[in-house]
Design a protein around this nucleic acid. Sequence first.
DNA 1: CGTCCACAGGAATGACGGGCGG
DNA 2: CCGCCCGTCATTCCTGTGGACG
Length: 394
Amino acid sequence: MDELELIFENATRSAIFTNREVLRPDYIPDQLPHRGNEIRKVAMVMATALQGVRPSNLFIYGLTGTGKTAVAKYVLKRLSAKAERSVKRVKWIYINTRIENTSYRVLAHIAEGLGLKIPFTGLSTSEVYRRIINRLNSDSVILILVLDEIDFMVRKEGDEILYRLSRVNEDLSSSKVTIVGITNDIRFIESLDPRVKSSLGEEELVFPPYNASQLEDILSERAKLAFRPGALGDGVIPLCAALAAREHGDARRALDLLRVAGEVAEREGADVVSEDHVHRAYNELERDRAVEVISTLPLHSKIVLYTIYRSVGDTPPTTGEVYVKYRELCQRMGLEPVTQRRVSDIISELDMLGLVNATIINRGRYGKTRILLPTIQRDVVLSALENDPYISMF
DNA sequence: CGTCCACAGGAATGACGGGCGG
DNA sequence: CCGCCCGTCATTCCTGTGGACG
């Protein structure tokens, strides 16, 4: 066997995985462990469609990786399968408004889902809306619209499409439309126009985060499909679950961790995934995330981040101290520094991105400030910053 | 017990570049 | 293609605040 043949063989035949696709975030399993209550609730709300009655609009809230999307898709898939054998026709369209992030694209997506041909530009949004209405009126169907990550669209476009969609039934005679909104931002609901809020939230459902033992069940379930028998070390799944549980019980993170751990093991030619592989996978994921986030930061945010991480070892700096160092650095780099007010906002942004930990403290006579603690390994941050041509010049 | 520190963080406004509808 | 709008980064001016100090 020649060298290339060997490489290709190794790529196709894994000592670790039988099917790694089932560990990817967009995979929808047949079983959704520990979401029985949620599945039942969604199903009960949606079931009226089978009697030809419009289901109530539903609002689903829950942190990332709590199974919101998976449950919604799962129930609706089952529902439409059941409906094929009933009198009333039920149709559902899934839209991720983080991707279809303008009202035009959302409407165009709906129109396409109804079998209409819509150019990606050229029509006004009201024209697309009109065509959707016409189509629905010439048909008799219960249409369930799933708007995932609905907060993204509203942040960008305002809630006027939601208002329009929530009242679409007033323009319809034979067909009916139900809206299922999904978000992980709880404050988002409060920011809505009260009319939209009451209409969209006819039914509400909160998805609690998974705890460590529930994550273990989810991982075990998938691992059966993903890994070769015996390819997983004993402590691997509990460890992945524990690490992910620490980060708000995010099942997606847990699955990523398990998959990457498998890939790390595979890369080194091990035939069993060990706990050590999990730790390395954890670092790798954290590193990737940090590099990704840091590389897209504006220049001055990078400089502020740099001053915070450079001073590790001394006592944790306050906003004022960081600002002084930041100004020095700007001068050395020949850049105009931004104001302290702006740096204050930059620090808040870095805090929200999880790149630093900013805690407000009151030192009485010595004022109120924030102390900045690093949250990530220093070399990860510094090497990510090196990628910036400006910064690497020092 | 009132001051006053060292900022937090809200509001208004502006420069700038990119995308979109007409 | 052009004007307009919108998001982002930034400034200016501002009011708010917990508690050590005198």
